[in-house]
Design a protein around this nucleic acid. Structure first.
Ligand SMILES: [Mn+2]
Ligand SMILES: [Mn+2]
Ligand SMILES: [Mn+2]
Ligand SMILES: [Mn+2]
Lengths: 232, 232
DNA sequence: ATTTTTTTTTAGACAAGTCTAAAAATTGTT
DNA sequence: AACAATTTTTAGACTTGTCTAAAAAAAAAT
């Protein structure tokens, strides 16, 4: 297998789906933690053993995708970072396609995008991007990097950080699980909805909010700390 | 690798991309030759060695996708046939998407569809089918099987079998190479064009035809024997 | 009916990606 | 500083999918 992963006539490095997935995991850990990714964190993210991760880190270092020193954790090289960002771009554009064109909901599109992001093509994703109207954000509100890997960083706060009287618009989620997204659907806390904080209860950190100037809603801290709001 | 190919909680057999590709190759050989596919034919179609094919045939037989007896060639089981047809369905629907929605030409779409056909999803392809308006034929004129694997067999003749005065509409191609399809584009022999046979030259079996009642065109036998016409 | 040629299978090897169990290094705690 | 706990790496094994070289079987030719 993987015959197609050897070098082609061009000198562009071939990369397997497994390698791509590890790079993406490292990228996300680096972003989230703000520091180098250690072996256990990667194995947790990839659902593999630490031993498997060590094997893979050697391969990725050989191919110059990561900076790796034994026992020191890893960061991405420029090339590794470029590859990971391209993967995130593909993932999010496919998610837009699935939701906008095929009617999938925001809690369904992720798993399919995990497969589609590995399609190799010099320009498929750019054509798809054009077809979709060059969206800037995916169905979860996450920004879509452009071809150069740049994306707008939105200024946003977590709903649990808002004070009484604050107003804003929901622009994203931290947690991405199906269960959480379905719950948000059920209570009406979806992207682009207007949010105004009416009360904050110190006891359990729950908050009473008003949606679109209409219905009032009490939400738990577990929800509010996973919802991003752009303050008006 | 291939951790995701082990059994999931359901009892549905997991199948790798390599296995799918072999099944498709066997299916096409069975169809084209009208008999069991032998090892060399499969290795030629798959660009692998005969030894690799033998290895794979054992695996596919173990999984009950093919009927295999040493030295006797192989045919698909009901399950193998169902899988191969589903793959062809996915391939052709993706080709329609690439050409109709993303602007790829009929000589570009095949390679990308070779990747996209392996996306695993219970209903993605049906949603895509609906999104595209449930097309009956792909960009090469090949019929698209429905979910049950059935497709309309069109009654058609090769252009080189037509007689002087015969008229019809171009509905397909036998050869699918990029070079051939690009040539057809250049001379104007594309799907749905009207064709009338004006002269047949015995010497080299070339034919003079009229396209859409307008321009006349002389085409070689190498072209005419690869073009399918539905007689008016 | 032999002999020759072609096809197919076997034998043995390899890379990718995974695992478990054990060893080594690092970090935390008394 | 020494001991204990945690993290990471190594060692060895397994599966999938591929290869080359050699053996075996089938088909074709004499
Ligand atoms: Mn996602
Ligand atoms: Mn997303
Ligand atoms: Mn095709
Ligand atoms: Mn086609």
């Amino acid at each position: 297998m993987l015959k197609h992963l050897s070098f082609t006539s061009s000198n562009k490095k071939m990369i397997s789906q497994a390698e791509e997935n590890y790079l993406k995991a490292i990228y996300k850990i680096n972003e989230r933690e703000g520091k180098s990714a250690n072996t256990n964190a990667i194995s947790a993210a990839m659902n593999t053993t630490a031993a498997s991760v060590t094997d893979m880190l050697k391969r990725l270092a050989d191919k110059d995708f990561i900076h790796y020193e034994k026992y020191k954790g890893v960061t991405l090289t420029t090339e590794g970072s470029r590859t990971a960002t391209a993967l995130v771009r593909k993932h999010r554009i496919w998610e837009v396609f699935l939701c906008d064109k095929l009617g999938y909901s925001w809690d369904e599109c992720h798993d399919l995008a995990e497969q589609l992001e590995h399609i190799q093509s010099p320009d498929l994703i750019d054509r798809l991007d054009t077809f979709l109207g060059k969206p800037k954000f995916d169905p979860h509100g996450d920004p879509i990097p452009d071809r150069d890997g740049n994306y707008a960083k939105r200024q946003q706060v977590r709903l649990d950080e808002m004070l009484i009287g604050d107003r804003g618009v929901m622009v994203g989620v931290h947690e991405h699980s199906s269960a959480f997204l379905q719950h948000l659907d059920r209570v009406g806390l979806v992207l682009a909805v207007q949010v105004e904080v009416l009360e904050v209860f110190d006891f359990d950190k729950s908050v009473k909010i008003r949606l679109n100037g209409l219905q009032e809603l009490l939400i738990s801290n577990k929800v509010s700390e996973n919802v991003f709001i752009k303050i008006a």
